[in-house]
């Protein structure tokens, strides 16, 4: 499977990465190089194999749970302290029209 330029643009848009027109061909070449190398996986027979999402044998098999107690929050200052655009007690972004 190799990517055409339309797909490269679509993927960049999905990932919210601005892609200048003059870079499309280069990026396409790099991605196709990597994907071509990954292609060898198609040769592996995985019939009947259960996918492994992560973890390790003997690790955490089931998600641990937390009690329903309020232990966090009440720290608007800290939450907002790193904001590039802070508007009072809110984060500011360019107006979103729906």
């Amino acid at each position: 499977m190799s990517l055409d330029t339309a797909t490269v643009r679509r993927v960049a848009a999905l990932a919210r990465l601005r892609l200048e027109e003059q870079d499309v061909a280069r990026v396409q070449g790099e991605l196709n190089g990597i994907l071509g190398w990954i292609e060898q996986l198609q040769a592996v027979n995985t019939d009947g194999v259960e996918p492994m999402a992560g973890g390790t044998p003997g690790g955490v098999a089931a998600m641990p749970m937390r009690e329903d107690v309020v232990t966090d929050g009440g720290q608007a200052e800290a939450v907002l302290a790193n904001a590039p655009d802070r508007e009072g007690e809110y984060f500011g972004v360019p107006k979103v029209v729906e």
């Binding site: 007690e89 809110y90 984060f91 500011g92 107006k95």
Partner: peptide, 15 residues
Amino acid sequence: KSQHDQHPTKSFIDL
């Protein structure tokens, strides 16, 4: 929640 009526050119975000 986004609030769109607080500022002429911005939306305000409350988490």
